[in-house]
Each structure stands twice: as structure tokens, then as C-alpha cells.
Nucleic acid binder design. Structure first.
Length: 516
DNA sequence: CGTATTTGACCGGCGC
DNA sequence: GCGCCGGTCAAATACG
């Protein structure tokens, strides 16, 4: 069962592709790092795999080979040793072999045969991997084409097309990027230069998609230096047009009985107030994952439906996000790229009047609110994936539907400036409240509805009918995530596309969390 | 005892 | 200027 839904939701996870291979035991991936067992098959397989395909794992493999510690990555030359060490009592096997040359010869021939079998297996798996890679590329191409097609169809605005397309494509690239999701502590000096570079590059991609600055503080995103020329330009433009804007916010509506949704960050409550027009108190939290992190969030139950939890994020994290948060952020960004279709703005300029259901599952998830003191994008995750364009009647205030959360550019696009707010600085292009969106996407990720919608949308784009697994296939990953703010250890699967990761690591603890 | 939460006080923005 | 309101501070309290 778990295998089943993994397969569906992690459709780009190379590791899971392998996992599906009939000849490869499931323990292959899991055991590669944790267990010391005579699993030469798996080891050999990975070794070859990485050597031929996966650059970013090369360094790891090389390290292992160099260390030759026999803990995880055996090369062929080590097979014998590994077998002896692992299958016999240490210290005894050697003398035993010396005393019994005949048996040793027999064993040697046995090992040779086994080695040949392994080589054969290795070839077979490699060819399978090639096929998978091929299919992967094909699907990627199809996705590109689908996105371009949709962009053309919805090409209501040239500027949007220019900005959006490239971003979309970048997003897709990032989504498809088989490199391991990053997010780990980039400030920490890495032992391997190659690895570091890979991480940086990957982060760059990630940030290209996710990055937003809300203009409140430009404390360097510790993730990096990621600056595509384009974004750099945008940033400069923004800085040039610095305006007295305060903060953009992202609000997430999700059904949850828990007082908090788990978004991968650690929060400390610093206040609670009764808000006007809502019998439920509003709680104020600040991020405590790093000293001085300016990110705040407000949590309040919906006055109309107390089962709906409204979480509003504000500010930029000044620290790397834990994998649990980053992965989800990446995924959501990728999902944004997938789901975003063409022009997203209100063509007649009237709030609430624009709706482009090119991607029915997601296009109604986001609304921009013009009435709030701050530009706020609201992501409504309270509807089921198949509740087709669920256009929750916009709240009394002015708002207009947006296809897409997690799509930073939207927040920055002056075209989206609420009529009431004359192009608030917060809405300037290039202002990228990165972390806010990331946090929100993390929150989104914790909502089963979103992941289901994402899966359905992806399936739609891919031209395949969405499987009817819906929430059930996604929600079972609770154990994958650590509790609030605690990074899930080593959960990024090597060589897996980032998008996949978020699919598999989505936290659904929203309903299980106890307040910290 | 250290840390997190609670809760009333305080502050600033905004409308009248 | 005043009051309302959202947001934050910080002392008191709770908790492990």
C-alpha cells in the first residue's frame, strides 16, 4: 500500500522508479546507508548507477569508495571482503580460509558466479535505468509542451507571458531537476567542493522559483546567492523603486482540528488577541528557528467554520529551512509552475471577476485580497481536489481569484495590485517574499487536499487520468516528517526530483499536532 | 532552573 | 484629540 501511493505521488522520483523494478528489493534504498548487510547486489547497482548517471551522487560514492570502509558502498573488488566481514564472524573467516584452500577455491568460484550474476543484474538494471531516464525525458518534454501550450492559450498579456513563461519553464526545470533537494544548512562548510557546488546549483534553481522578497527586510537569504541574471535584474529594479510598503502576507485556509498546522518551522507564541468579528482568538507566533528571524504568523479559526484554520504568514526567514519545510516549499513552487496556466490577472480590473480555470484543481485556490492592510494572498485548501472550481465566494472584502499560490511573481506583479492599493510596493515585480511563500507552501503541503489536488493536476497535465487515490494515498506519510520544526533526517532521496520529494514528505500532521 | 505560554499593558495607525 | 483596533512586549505563570 505504501509502495503503491508512493509510486503514484512520486512520479519523478528516480529512487522510486528503481523501487518498482522487480529485481530490486525495496530495502535497496533504505539499507544503502543504514545497514551493513551483504547486499552486494544493491551496492553494486548503485555504484554503477551513480557512475553513469547521477553526478551529484558521485562525490558520495567516491567518498565511500575511497574510505573503503565497507559500510555502504562496495565496489566489485570489495565484494569478497564484504562478504566475509558481514557473513562470518570477524576475525575467524580469514584463518578459516587459509586453512582450507579447497573450500576457498570452491567459495571463490561460487563468488565468481555470483559476481557474474551480479554483473548481469547490473546490466539489466542499468538498461532499465536508461529506459526510465528516457521516459523521464519524454515526460519532461511533454510537460514543457503542455505548459507552453497553455501559456499560449492564455496569453492575454504579453508582459505576463514574458515574465511568466520563463519563470514557468524555470519552475518546471526545477521541478524536473533530478538533483537532490537542497535545503540543508548551506552555511555549513561542506566537505566536498563538488557536492557544495551541486547543492548551490540546486538551490539556485529552487530559489529561482520560490524566491520572493517582500521588501521588509533584505537580510540575505542564507540559501544563497542564487541569482539568475533575470531575478537579479528584477531585484535591482525593485530596489530602485523602493517604496514604503510594509509586508505582503500569505494566508492559508485549511481544515484542521489542531491548533497549528505543521509547516516545518519552529514557532513561539508571543501573543493572543481577540480579533474583531471573530469569536475565536487570534494567536501570534514568531519563528524561533534562528535568532532574529523576522517571520511571524497568525493563527485563527474561521468564524464561519471553526474547523477551518487560517494561518497567515509574514516576513522572510533569515535562515535555511529544514528539509521538512524546504521540500514542501520546493514542491509547492513546482506545483505552482505546473498548475499555473497563462495569464492570471483580472482582465477587466474588477476584483473577483477574473477566473481562469485552465487548471481547475488549483486555479481557485488562491485569492488576492485588496482590503487587508497588507497585500494578502489567500490559499484556500479547504476544498477537495475534485470539488472542481470551487469558488469560495470571496469574503466581503475585495479579492480576486488567482491561479496560484506559491508563485512569487504574482505577488510582485503590479498588475495584481488591488484596486484599492495603488500598486503597493509590496506588489512590485521582483519583490520576492521568499520565505513567506515557502512557509506557506509548507503549510499547504501539510494539507492533504492540496497534495491530492496536485496529484490530480499533474495527472491531468501528463495526459493521464488522475488516479482515484486522492487523499488516502498521500496522507499516510505522517511518520516521514518529524514534528514541528524538526528536520526530517535524510529524507531527501538521492537523485530524486524536488517535486517528488515534497509529494512524499508532505506532512499531514496538521490534524495531529499538539501545540508546542 | 530554563524554556514556553499566558495575558494584560502598551504602542502605533487609522478613522471620525 | 479620541477611541478603536491590530500587533507586540514583557511580567507572571506553567511546565518539564
Amino acid at each position: 500500500m505504501e509502495k503503491h501511493h508512493r509510486r503514484e505521488l512520486t512520479f519523478l522520483h528516480s529512487g522510486d522508479f528503481l523501487r518498482q523494478n522487480p529485481g530490486v528489493p525495496d530495502r535497496t534504498l533504505d539499507d544503502s546507508s543504514d545497514h551493513v548487510k551483504p547486499q552486494i547486489k544493491e551496492m553494486d547497482f548503485f555504484s554503477s548507477q551513480y557512475q553513469s548517471h547521477d553526478h551529484h551522487q558521485e562525490s558520495k560514492t567516491d567518498d565511500d569508495n575511497n574510505n573503503n570502509n565497507g559500510s555502504s558502498s562496495f565496489v566489485d573488488s570489495c565484494v569478497n571482503i564484504g562478504l566475509n566481514l558481514l557473513s562470518s564472524s570477524p576475525g575467524v573467516s580469514r584463518s578459516t580460509n587459509e586453512e582450507k584452500p579447497v573450500n576457498s577455491n570452491a567459495e571463490e568460484s561460487t563468488l565468481k558466479i555470483e559476481l557474474e550474476n551480479l554483473n548481469e543484474e547490473n546490466r539489466r538494471l542499468r538498461s532499465m535505468l536508461d529506459q526510465i531516464t528516457k521516459s523521464y525525458n519524454e515526460v519532461q518534454g511533454q510537460l514543457f509542451m503542455a505548459l507552453q501550450k497553455q501559456a499560449h492559450l492564455n496569453q492575454g498579456d504579453q508582459k505576463d507571458a514574458v515574465n511568466g513563461m520563463s519563470s514557468r519553464i524555470m519552475s518546471v526545470q526545477q521541478f524536473m531537476d533530478p538533483r537532490p533537494p537542497v535545503a540543508l544548512d548551506v552555511n555549513e562548510p561542506s566537505g566536498s567542493d563538488d557536492k557544495t557546488q551541486e547543492l548551490s546549483a540546486s538551490q539556485e534553481n529552487t530559489m529561482e522559483v520560490v524566491s520572493i522578497k517582500d521588501g521588509t527586510d533584505q537580510t540575505s537569504q542564507s540559501w544563497g546567492s542564487l541569482k539568475s541574471p533575470k531575478l537579479e535584474q528584477s531585484k535591482n529594479e525593485d530596489q530602485a523603486s523602493e517604496a514604503p510598503f510594509r509586508k505582503a502576507r500569505v494566508s492559508v485556509r485549511a481544515r484542521s482540528e489542531a491548533p497549528l498546522i505543521s509547516d516545518g518551522c519552529q514557532w513561539r507564541k508571543y501573543g493572543q488577541k481577540m480579533a474583531k468579528g471573530n469569536p475565536c482568538p487570534r494567536a501570534y507566533y514568531r519563528c524561533t528557528m534562528a535568532v532574529g528571524c523576522p517571520v511571524r504568523k497568525q493563527v485563527q479559526r474561521c468564524a464561519d467554520d471553526k474547523s477551518i484554520l487560517i494561518t497567515t504568514y509574514e516576513g522572510n526567514h533569515n535562515h535555511p529551512l529544514p528539509p521538512a519545510a524546504t521540500a514542501m516549499a520546493n514542491t509547492t513552487s513546482a506545483a505552482a509552475a505546473m498548475l499555473l496556466s497563462g495569464s492570471t490577472k483580472s482582465k477587466d480590473g474588477l476584483p473577483g471577476s477574473a477566473y481562469f480555470p485552465s487548471l481547475p484543481y488549483a486555479s481557485s485556490m488562491a485569492t488576492l485580497s485588496a482590503s487587508a492592510p497588507f497585500p494578502t494572498i489567500t490559499l484556500d485548501l479547504t476544498q477537495g481536489p475534485n470539488a472542481v472550481p470551487f469558488l469560495r465566494p470571496p469574503p466581503s472584502n475585495a479579492s480576486f481569484p488567482l491561479p496560484l499560490h506559491g508563485y512569487p511573481q504574482l505577488l510582485g506583479n503590479p498588475m495584481f495590485a488591488p484596486p484599492k492599493l495603488p500598486a503597493p510596493p509590496a506588489m512590485q515585480l521582483g519583490q520576492r517574499p521568499t520565505s513567506m511563500v515557502e512557509t506557506v507552501t509548507a503549510a499547504i503541503a501539510s494539507d492533504p487536499n492540496f497534495t491530492a489536488a496536485l496529484a490530480a493536476a499533474i495527472s491531468t497535465i501528463m495526459g493521464a487520468p488522475p488516479r482515484n487515490n486522492g487523499n488516502s494515498s498521500i496522507n499516510n506519510d505522517e511518520n516521514n516528517n518529524s514534528s514541528n520544526g524538526v528536520p526530517a533526517p535524510a529524507h531527501p532521496a538521492p537523485g530524486s526530483p524536488q517535486a517528488q520529494q515534497s509529494c512524499t514528505t508532505f506532512s499531514t500532521k496538521a490534524c495531529n499536532n499538539k501545540p508546542g
